[in-house]
Design a binder for these strands. Structure first.
Length: 497
RNA sequence: CGAGGUGUGGCUCAGUUUGGUAGAGCACUACGUUCGGGACGUAGGGGCCGCAAGUUCGAAUCUUGUCACCUCGACCA
């Protein structure tokens, strides 16, 4: 017998099983036959499309434009930036040949040894190198700057272990790559885009995030500074949900991208890159879902309202169809996406359960009783509460309800997260608390060695040094919980995905 | 790449210890009764048991090899 979501109530213990089951049952994605890749199913992709559209609007508002760069990167490009190659070399898929031929021993096709590439090509794990190799040709003068490009693309990293949405070999993302004349401008850009991610996560995904800066150990390969938004999942683990990097002049120097400034002097360009991926889908799923399935915030739900008729015969269905048609039209005119599911091959109970698993925020039901009384039953997915209301003005009520659900889902996630943030002063206490999950605010001496030691002993890493204060006094100096050396402020530790 | 585990219909699995006609539930098809929380009855369709070699009168079951996947490490958005 298949495992049902509701059987997995001890979510913290069976979390990964629960999560996988949820992704599959909610019709979002499935494991592909190709190693480490996933198939995103139409319903899951519809959510991604909504995310894409919203993010894209926000990028445009901050002055960015879209472009597209090649999938294949010459191997030599990758090695130009020393730290970058070290960070990605171990997970690159390599193209070595450009042709197949018929197998002389029969049957299928084999790689044609005569078609070996002189220089191997890498399937992009990220596009900094190919983009900076291109920017070299675009930039001569300070008048060419800044360049504010974004790319929507797929990337490929040969991961050892994969999880649907959270870590797949191939994933979809956007990567912004900007070039600036000054250090200050680039640093501002990196922070600006992190704020865009933060706003998107909280306003649209209803996922509360901590914005902050990464420690040196967790920094992007080739960056001077990495900013991050960190979310907390329901099992208390952290999920890095988006990053923005200040790249300094590293890539400009590696690809020799210089510009002439106003004083007619040559200078290297300052760079940033920033990205979010289909991992956000994982964050969305793991933040809000319950044992009945997915819970979608209305702003990202492909279907915001589903209407289910209950009828005994064709005549009755015709009456309901007629009555519902007006409501559907009105809801649509208000910009609400509605699905009227009058398919007669599924029973109402099945539909109820199915749309709950899919996370549809609001369900309206009309049956014989309602037809007589001019009412409908309304169920909200976040609380599972049901009530019966008159059809008069039901559209406005639904519109308000959607906003209320959006706010409530966020508040619930925020309250949960805040309840799992603790502050500790001793390493012993830290070791105890880390077992319970959640974010721990503690003092750290700032050295990679101490961070490494903590990671080895507790599996916890520094998620970020937060911009904002979470508990009174966390921005005041103290002593490292491990070494006792001075520390400027508390940082966030957690176990992570 | 290290340690463990699993490959049997579309899905979840039993059968392997002790070799002897390929099983169950769900899903699917048809008909009927149902329909306000994942319906029920009856009848049906579908699998050379991951792949290869070996042992045997006979292999899903034993042996060897191989491939794939999963969990936990290491790595990572």
């Amino acid at each position: 017998m298949a495992v049902e979501l509701k059987d997995l109530t001890k979510r913290s213990e069976n979390y990964s099983q629960w999560y996988n089951e949820l992704v599959v049952k909610a019709d979002l994605a499935e494991q592909s036959a190709v190693r480490g890749c996933m198939v995103i199913k139409p319903y899951g992709y519809a959510i991604w499309e909504k995310m894409q559209r919203q993010l894209d609007d926000m990028f445009k508002e901050t002055g960015h434009v879209n472009a597209y760069f090649p999938l294949l990167i010459p191997k030599s490009f990758l090695s130009r930036e020393a730290e970058h190659v070290e960070g990605f070399a171990k997970e690159c898929a390599v193209v070595t040949h450009y042709r197949l031929k018929n197998d002389p021993n029969g049957g299928g096709v084999v790689v044609d040894p005569a078609a070996k590439l002189e220089e191997e090509l890498i399937i992009r794990p990220t596009s900094e190198t190919i983009i900076w190799n291109t920017y070299k040709n675009w930039i001569n003068s300070y008048r060419d700057l800044p360049i504010l490009c974004n790319q929507w693309a797929n990337v490929f990293r040969w991961e050892m272990r994969t999880r649907l949405f959270l870590r797949t070999a191939e994933f979809l993302w956007q990567e912004g790559h900007t070039a600036h004349a000054t250090r200050e401008e680039a640093e501002e850009e990196a922070v600006r885009m992190l704020n865009v991610y933060g706003e998107f996560a909280e306003k649209y995904m209803a996922v509360p995030v901590v914005k902050g800066v990464k420690s040196a150990n967790e920094r992007f390969a080739g960056a001077l500074n990495t900013y991050t938004i960190e979310a907390m999942m329901q099992d208390g683990k952290a999920l890095q949900s988006g990053t923005s990097h200040f790249l300094g002049q590293n890539f400009a120097k590696a690809f020799d991208v210089q510009f002439v400034n106003k004083e007619n002097k040559l200078e290297y360009v300052w760079a940033t890159s920033w990205g979010v991926s289909t991992r956000l889908m994982g964050a969305l799923i793991m933040t809000h879902s319950d044992d009945n399935g997915l819970v979608l915030p209305p702003h990202l739900a492909p279907i915001q309202v589903v209407i289910v008729p209950i009828y005994k015969n064709a005549e009755m269905l015709a009456k309901i169809d007629e009555k519902v048609a007006g409501i559907v039209a009105k809801l649509k005119s208000m910009g609400i996406s509605v699905k009227y599911d009058n398919a007669d091959n599924k029973r109402p109970g099945f539909k109820f359960a199915d749309y709950e698993v899919k996370g549809v925020p609001v369900r309206l039901v009309m049956g014989g009783r309602d037809l007589e009384n001019n009412t409908m039953e309304i169920m909200r997915r976040d609380t599972l509460e049901k009530e019966t209301r008159s059809c008069e003005g039901i559209e406005e009520y639904v519109k308000d309800l959607l906003e209320e659900i959006q706010a409530n889902v966020y508040k619930k996630a925020l309250d949960f997260r805040n309840s799992k943030i603790t502050s500790v002063d001793s390493y012993d206490e830290f070791k105890e608390k880390i077992e319970e999950g959640g974010f721990i605010l503690a003092h750290w001496d700032g050295t990679p060695e101490t961070e490494e030691k903590i990671k080895e002993e507790t599996k916890a890493t520094i998620r970020c040094i937060p911009f904002d204060s979470f508990v009174p006094g966390d921005k005041e100096p103290g002593k490292c919980m491990v070494t006792g050396k001075p520390s400027a402020c508390r940082v966030i530790f957690a176990r992570s995905y």
